[in-house]
Design a protein around this nucleic acid. Structure first.
Lengths: 342, 342
DNA sequence: TTGTAGGCGTTATCAG
DNA sequence: CTGATAACGCCTACAA
């Protein structure tokens, strides 16, 4: 052992199966069998091998294993961006489930990168399957992935495409429920402060709002698009809406927007909810701690990540055949920003 | 081409370099050279090769490339957990910088896993280097990594070990500055509501607080440890502190704790900051939107991730020799929770 | 029970 | 300029 140690000092890379084999005085096949418990090995031999492996601090090269096994044992996930309080929760659920399924998680943030498509392609080469979150879905790369039958699941995609697995959160029912609650408070004029291009989620919420108001005989809501989610854009839009002729309710597409609106309202001297009600969507942490606490719709972010990991695993292992189309339930969270609740 | 297409239909895996070579009527070496631009190839030949590659939709296998190159072109990052608003920002900075450096990012959340150590080992086998965030640093696996000279950088470790690169955020100066600001408001009795076991960051903040108060001739702060960061623990601790004989100021180890304290204060009918001042640490999004807005210390989370990625790259490429010991500046953010500022 | 040898997909060296 | 061919590290029939 001391003799070996002398050689160890300059080694930066782990021992190979060959060295273990030589040291244990056996062939590499036997080492492989002994270490991974496949095929039988005489106890004495096994002992020697384990010993040798331990002494050499042998860890099988992932590359070698993957190459031989023909799989990566890794999942990818593509986010449009990593900003905001969202994706963290999603990733959390995804990573947890993936770990449970013995798979590593490689993450890429596609936004802002000119080379985003290349990054996604690169990712594809490192994993057995991947999930694509949100707007990245239109990309031609995703089409490629699907075309070449790379296991792929779409998480909350902006447009619903046919073929790949899709996991989304419910919008219509909860938006309707939210609208009804607001109507019940006696609110009559609605403004919807929403996302830039819309996208499926926001479209669905908008549609449900329009629908519910129409059914109740209330005036149609006023749509106010957002030119972006940057701090400046959001504040400017909120200010524009609130500065003159504010509605009874400002329904926002996201909590971040609603929180900005809350601030603007305060700056303008508008009391929430007395002068104007405000609602968000997502139930991020700040929504609970804001003043007033924000009425919103909770999305099961963590669960979305988890479901995505499981769906992907089914795809990879071939456990399931038909495409998945899962809609996770959301929950309307009533707080003080929509009205005083005695 | 039509002939080829007929064979394509059942293929799930990308073409190999051999197929490209055969199709272009050349050897694989030439294909490799042509595609990666190393060594020269006659223009006409190159054309044929590119054409063949495109037709076959050839993408070099990452596994093959990595095996041959002897590198993964990937970075790992280990978080204790993925919960909270923190790590998202850190990961964001890390991923961005890594992408810029042409490296993928594999993430693992070690907390809660019995097999965490194995996961980290597995991760180590997939990357050229890794960064370990926070408390995971004591783990024996980290010692292994360092012993076997795996490029490793410690991000905000709970204890400062010698040898590997370490990146932290400044605590002492900013905690002192915060304490002075509070003293200037006339606050005299301080309670520090802090983390479970402490850890370096919290220890440093505590020490600086003690120090500053001592210098000012004020009474020593009262330490109140937290049994954990769960919602219940934090609320219970906050309630215990505020219910009887509340101090002038409640200095909290994290924004989450401070936000909980804010709620408890309101429930107890204590006005912030009139009856009691509250401060946090981190400047998460909710801190800005809470009521009253939270006085806190902003940590450069995103930048920490970015620096980690760059430090790791230097380690991997051997650009730098000596160990890195970087302390990133923080910023005291004064809002309303510590006093009314006219 | 054990060892030999082929294969996985590249890169890079070294003769042509 | 090109093409064999040897690594790279492991897994797994197939033989013995």
């Amino acid at each position: 052992m001391s003799e070996q140690d002398a050689n160890d000092k300059s080694e930066h890379t782990s021992a190979t199966i060959y060295e273990v084999a030589r040291r244990a005085g056996v062939g590499i096949a036997t080492v492989s069998r002994a270490l991974r418990g496949t095929g039988s090995v005489r106890p004495a031999t096994r002992e020697r091998i384990l010993e040798a492996a331990r002494e050499l601090n042998f860890i099988p090269s992932r590359l070698g294993v993957s190459l031989a096994e023909g799989r990566h044992a890794a999942n990818g996930i593509v986010f449009p961006s990593l900003t905001g309080p969202y994706f963290g929760e999603v990733l959390l659920g995804y990573e947890e489930a993936a770990a449970e399924l013995k798979r590593s998680v490689i993450v890429v943030a596609a936004d802002g990168l000119d080379s985003a498509q290349d990054h996604i392609r690169d990712l594809a080469g490192r994993v057995d399957g991947m999930v694509i979150y949100g707007s990245t879905a239109e990309s031609e790369v995703v089409a490629e992935l699907i075309a070449e039958r790379k296991p792929t699941v779409l998480l909350s995609p902006r447009v619903l495409v046919d073929g790949p697995d899709v996991i989304t959160a419910e919008n219509t029912r909860s938006a309707g429920e939210l609208a009804e609650h607001l109507l019940a408070h006696g609110h009559r004029t609605f403004t919807f402060l929403g996302g830039p291009t819309g996208g499926r989620d926001i479209d669905e919420r908008w549609a449900a709002l329009v629908d519910t108001l129409a059914k109740a005989g209330a005036a149609a809501p006023r749509p106010v698009p957002l030119s972006g989610y940057g701090r400046a854009e959001v504040y400017a839009a909120a200010r524009a809406v609130l500065a003159q002729d504010p509605p009874d309710v400002l329904v926002c597409s996201h909590d971040e927007v609603a929180l900005a609106a809350l601030r603007v309202a305060r700056e303008l001297g508008l009391r929430v909810p007395d002068d104007i009600a405000v609602t968000g969507w997502d139930d991020v942490m700040a929504a609970e701690h804001s003043w007033p606490p924000l009425t919103t719709v909770r999305q099961p972010m963590r669960r979305m990540g988890e479901m995505a990991a499981r769906a992907l695993d089914e795809l990879i292992t071939g456990t399931r055949t038909g495409p998945l189309r899962q809609v996770l339930p959301t929950e309307v969270i009533i707080r003080e920003s929509c009205a005083h609740h005695p």
